[in-house]
Design a protein around this nucleic acid. Structure first.
Lengths: 214, 214
DNA sequence: ACCTGAACACCGTTCAAGT
DNA sequence: ACCTGAACACCGTTCAAGT
């Protein structure tokens, strides 16, 4: 049986699968070729280069965001689509870091549609051009920035008690009492990697914007 | 004249200088060796590996943050130290991305002191343990996340008019009216890379925390 | 004690050669 | 039209050999 023909679509899907399981460090032209039973050089027939590959993968992730959620008012709908974005970026934890990586600005169709949607809904909710400008920045930077922050602060695998002990040795309670308390909260909380923490900051932003609109 | 002796301190300083001018992609054991007139392998006598090098560099950046700013009340002081952190990360635009990079959790002395200071000041300002926990996350993720977001969204070099034209060709005004308006605001605003944009989100968070404290 | 040459296992990418 | 072998210019890191 001849293997399935290589297409851009199949390459992007395989790239996402590879990154989901191995992290962004595992995305390599050579590894991706191996996953597709093909030499790395073959990929260049369907993808301009590695950046083009990453752009395509990220475009698909943005495509998973629900931009028309149900909801009674603008605030409820804005919260719902932010949570949908948060969910998508948690499903693909490699994406936020690549999107925010300075040096390679990624202008991507699905991201443009995402921006257009959020900006339009703020304007429709009677936000001024000025407040929409700053409000979008606050929302987008929270969605991408907080999610990346959250992914990086997840408890690493391994025995929590042992982890905590090693941490205490580096930063003794006597010198870092508040830090110790904070870390303990992280341990008992399980991980803070839940919708709650994301929505806490989101709520602050939405509340603030609503009050500023007057 | 024999060249100056290699030390960990000199290596970290040279690394920061290299990254400041060339971006995080320019940090290479080989390039760093060249900058110090030394073979790359020599660095391993003073630094365990590349991650240890990056940890040391980031530690120095955290050390630049003013943790005891003047100010009448907790809110004013919290805003001042957040702005000081923002300044430090803008001086070294490669740092945020490395700090937030998942997969290599960086437990670094200067960062522990930074956390201890902020957590302690929230508790001193009569925030509950619970609110301090979430408030710290909101503040830290805004400081690191927004700053990284901001650095990545700076206008790339080149003729702005030409840039705008290329953008319009990809995303026509008819289909993306709000996006076009937003981009136009970015152009006339110069860059939003100023304290104002950072403080906008910071103000939303501080206001929200103050109200939740009751 | 510290520096280095040679080597190893990786990268992204090009290009001529095959089918 | 699409795939590949060989090659190039890079990586991080180890280790024995030099001083």
């Amino acid at each position: 049986m001849p293997r399935a023909a290589l297409t851009r679509e199949r390459i992007l899907q395989a790239g996402i699968r590879l990154a989901d399981t191995g992290g962004s460090g595992s995305i390599t032209m050579r590894k991706l070729g191996r996953a597709l039973d093909v030499e790395a050089m073959s990929l260049y027939n369907h993808v301009a280069n590695k950046d083009d590959l990453l752009d395509g993968m990220i475009d698909l992730v943005f495509g998973e965001i629900d931009l028309s959620p149900a909801g009674a008012d603008w605030e409820e709908r804005m919260r719902a689509s932010a949570v949908s974005a948060h969910d998508a970026f948690l499903r693909h934890p490699w994406a936020c870091g690549l999107i925010l990586d300075p040096g390679t600005p990624r202008v991507i169709p699905a991201r443009a549609r995402y921006m257009e949607s959020i900006l339009g809904r703020l304007r429709d909710a009677r936000f001024s051009a000025e407040l929409t400008y700053h409000g979008y920045h606050a929302l987008d930077s929270h969605i991408l920035g907080f999610t990346l922050w959250e992914i990086g602060h997840a408890l690493p695998p391994g025995d929590p008690a042992e982890l905590f002990a090693g941490f205490q040795r580096l930063f003794p309670v006597s010198e870092f009492p508040h830090l110790a308390e904070h870390v303990r909260q992280h341990m008992t909380d399980g991980s803070h990697r839940d919708v709650g923490a994301f929505e806490f900051g989101l709520g602050l932003i939405l509340d603030g914007l609503k009050r500023m609109r007057g």
